[in-house]
């Protein structure tokens, strides 16, 4: 990746494809972990964390492709702002916002993730990935 500028970092179409691949892998593992949560509820927390990582990677992919930059801010909500700048990115940015709102709680284990929250997180993550996949096709 190229040099950083403020809270964003320059990136290329190659970086976009790399980040999309990361997103696919994060989601793949999130879905495996989600499949285990009935045996062990702690897997739900792990699955949500991975779904969030998938969403962030997918947002990076779309932003690298369309804008040539991705968020490097400590505050992941800045990634939403950047994603909104991608043409047609409003809905994906909303999905990412909802996903990130679960991040801290799930990541640090402040509360147990319910089955419904897990399903929502996976759905939102898939929606951001679908947007990134479409952005890579332009």
């Amino acid at each position: 990746m190229a040099r950083s500028r403020g809270h964003s970092q320059r990136c290329s179409p190659d970086d976009a494809r790399n980040r999309y691949r990361h997103a696919v892998k994060f989601l793949e593992v999130a879905e495996i972990a989600a499949g285990e949560h009935e045996q062990d509820p702690e897997y739900a927390t792990v699955a949500v964390s991975l779904a969030v990582l998938a969403g962030i990677a997918a947002a990076d992919a779309a932003c690298c492709k369309a804008l040539g930059e991705r968020s490097r801010s400590q505050d992941h909500h800045d990634a939403e702002v950047l994603l909104k700048r991608v043409s047609g990115g409003g809905d994906a940015a909303k999905q990412l916002h909802q996903l990130l709102s679960l991040k801290d709680e799930a990541h640090y284990g402040f509360f147990d993730v319910s089955a419904a929250e897990l399903r929502k997180a996976l759905r939102r993550s898939r929606a951001v990935l679908a947007f990134a996949k479409d952005a890579l096709r332009r």
């Binding site: 320059r10 492709k65 369309a66 804008l67 040539g68 930059e69 700048r85 991608v86 047609g88 332009r138």
Partner: peptide, 14 residues
């Protein structure tokens, strides 16, 4: 591909 304004320099890069 963008919803907001972009600088000429960034457009040249892209």
């Amino acid at each position: 591909g963008t919803a907001q304004g972009m600088s000429g320099r960034r457009i040249a890069e892209l």
